[in-house]
Design a protein around this nucleic acid. Sequence first.
DNA 1: ACTATAACTTTGATTAGTCAAAATATTTTA
DNA 2: TAAAATATTTTGACTAATCAAAGTTATAGT
Lengths: 222, 222
Amino acid sequence: MATSTVENYLKEILVITLEESVSKVPMGQVARVLGVTPGTATSMAKSLERDGWIKYFPRVGVSLTRKGRKLAMNMLRRHRLLETFLVETLGLDWSEIHAEAEELEHAISEKVLEKLDEFLGRPRFDPHGDPIPSKGGVIQQLSSKPLSDFEKDAEIRIESIIDQDKEFLKFARKTKLVPGQRFKIIGKEDCADSITLKNSRGKEVNLGFRSAEKVLALPFES
Amino acid sequence: MATSTVENYLKEILVITLEESVSKVPMGQVARVLGVTPGTATSMAKSLERDGWIKYFPRVGVSLTRKGRKLAMNMLRRHRLLETFLVETLGLDWSEIHAEAEELEHAISEKVLEKLDEFLGRPRFDPHGDPIPSKGGVIQQLSSKPLSDFEKDAEIRIESIIDQDKEFLKFARKTKLVPGQRFKIIGKEDCADSITLKNSRGKEVNLGFRSAEKVLALPFES
DNA sequence: ACTATAACTTTGATTAGTCAAAATATTTTA
DNA sequence: TAAAATATTTTGACTAATCAAAGTTATAGT
């Protein structure tokens, strides 16, 4: 059985792999996201390889084995289901749930996780709009693009907010710029670095390109 | 900050202290309930004393300091609130919740615990009928007695089931012999070692003295 | 192509928690 | 009360996870 330290290493390696579409994650990055010294990450890489969780390529980086990927996917599932529970059921704030789920994900059993999934109505996306892997470890990969990549008149659905900055999240919530919401791009001025959205109730929101890059969306067929 | 091992030691010491109304718990018993060798318990006792959680009396036993008792009470609160959640909200079986709560109690934050308490409607008793300590660490001590101590014609309310035997718990549930239920003792035959209860709907249950000792109840004024 | 810098690995040490087995103390029993 | 049984402590060893600091290798810049 994996310790929670092992679970954390594997999950973070998976997240980087998915986010940056790379096959090997360099040790420096592993050390940074886990908040340990590089030496610690290296020695951990060796034991993770010894136990068959990852492949370690000295001076290059690490990649997950099938076994490691499976466990990491399961951790991601736990994490995102817990985040959903914390927001939907207990009403915690968006900005707090990550740290909370980080702890709980190691303690919750497969059985309780199942009950929770059922209780929540088997959600497919977490409050950030990230897909929740299925029990089998399959993750729905959507080809969402930053808002700044869409053209004028496009109809879109917000998928996720990349930035974790508190102020921006607060603004996003106030303007309903949250996962699931639908908008039409009614203005786009490349030279003025500005995008204007309108939702179905006629409310308008203005974003600079810098912010628009932090908001991922999908084209939406009405 | 206390590790979860420390939390476990303190909680178990508290539970024994409460259940057996003793002031010092011998090391052998500590080792047994925690599933470690006696030597481990002894060396742990020393570090717990070093960090101010307990007082260690060599060859006699350990007792909690004020600081240790406070933390242990908090663990008990976590444990019992979680058990309540697992039964009431997720519908887990009585017999499974102890082990589950045992893991989760170390991972849940004070904040989430508060939200959970609120969500559950601030329950005062867990599914076993044991009192849930308040946030300040106060525990409601009821003077419940084993069923076998009551006389004929007494009206009682079940408080808790001491035994954790699966078969007995199953029987208890089937016959509604669970915390909160009310019964009248309609027969007691000391020589035949038997007690007969009747609930408000006229259903009768027969218990031998051995079993009646496992069921704690309170006198009930109608 | 050298050198300076950045990235990575090694080495040696530390802490928490554990066990097995030997040593010691206490309690029970004959 | 002396021997046997039981309870507790000590000792020595081990694993997981970590850090600091020294050593090594790769990368980039002139």
